[in-house]
Simulated scan of single mutants.
Amino acid sequence: MTESVLPEPGRRRSRKRRSGCLPVMLVALLFGAIVAWFARGAISDVKDMFAGPEDYAGPGAGAVTVVIDPGQSIRSMGDRLEGLDVVASSDAFVDAAGKNAKSQSIQAATYQMKKQMKAADAVAFLADPKNAGAGNTVTVPEGARVGQIVDAIEKKTDFTEKRTTDLLANPASIGLPAEAAGNPEGYLYPATYEINDRTTPKSLLSQMVAQTAAAEKDLGITAGARKAWA
């Protein structure tokens, strides 16, 4: 009678144990890869968080005309400079202005600046009164009356008072809307306007009226609402 040889008890169990470990190891490796992927993204986000806003290295190149309006905020200046590619980001300009006490004395004027400047350099440039083009701009202050605006135009340009008042007396020539009923009061937008060789009394007044219309459109002010508000 032949004796049957039984396998050793431990062998089959050890094979099963080894084959059962493989899926677990694969899952662990996959999980580790996913964690590493997300960790890399998180580290990158943290680095970006502490790196500060985007900024150019400077010193910049080319030329661009920048108009700073009366009462314009630092944030608004930054937005305008970013739009003109003078600075890489408005945030960088705001941060640089916060570190420069002279930024609070930036004048409303026209400036000839470079593109892609370092934000700190842009702030320093604007804060230097020597860089303000005082001779080639007309500033309409907030709340100025028509008579005061006419005086400012006469002082800053070669335009005569008579020529300016004649245009104001002919509202259609400068684009004054019908609801103004011929009265330009409140329709000459407060801002700083650049004067160059192509500027005429008509184009200057028309620009002021157009600025008012654009601002009211942005704010959603209708003709009826303007009358009620006035």
Rank of each mutant, 00 (worst) to 15 (best):
M77G: 04
G98V: 13
Q107F: 13
S89T: 05
K102E: 15
A101Y: 10
V86W: 01
M117Q: 08
R80L: 11
M117T: 03
V86L: 05
D85Q: 11
D121K: 08
D121A: 14
K99C: 11
F125R: 03
R75S: 13
G78T: 07
E82A: 14
G83F: 08
M117V: 09
S105T: 14
N100A: 13
D85C: 06
S73E: 05
Q112I: 13
A97S: 09
S73H: 06
A127F: 09
A124H: 07
K102P: 10
A92S: 11
Q112R: 15
V87Q: 03
N100T: 09
G98Q: 13
G98M: 08
L81T: 01
S90A: 14
D128M: 09
R75I: 07
N100F: 02
I74H: 06
A97K: 01
E82D: 12
I106Q: 02
A101D: 15
Q107Y: 11
D128E: 12
D85R: 14
M77L: 15
N100M: 07
N100V: 04
S73A: 08
K118T: 08
D79C: 02
D121T: 08
F93S: 02
A97P: 00
F93R: 03
A120W: 09
N100H: 07
G78M: 07
A96P: 03
S103A: 15
S76N: 11
Y111M: 06
I74T: 10
K99W: 07
K118G: 08
K118P: 08
D85G: 05
K114S: 14
Q72M: 12
K115S: 12
K99D: 14
R80P: 04
D85V: 12
G83Y: 04
K99Y: 04
V87R: 00
K102W: 12
Q116S: 15
I74E: 02
V94K: 00
I74A: 02
I74W: 03
D91H: 06
S103N: 09
L81Q: 01
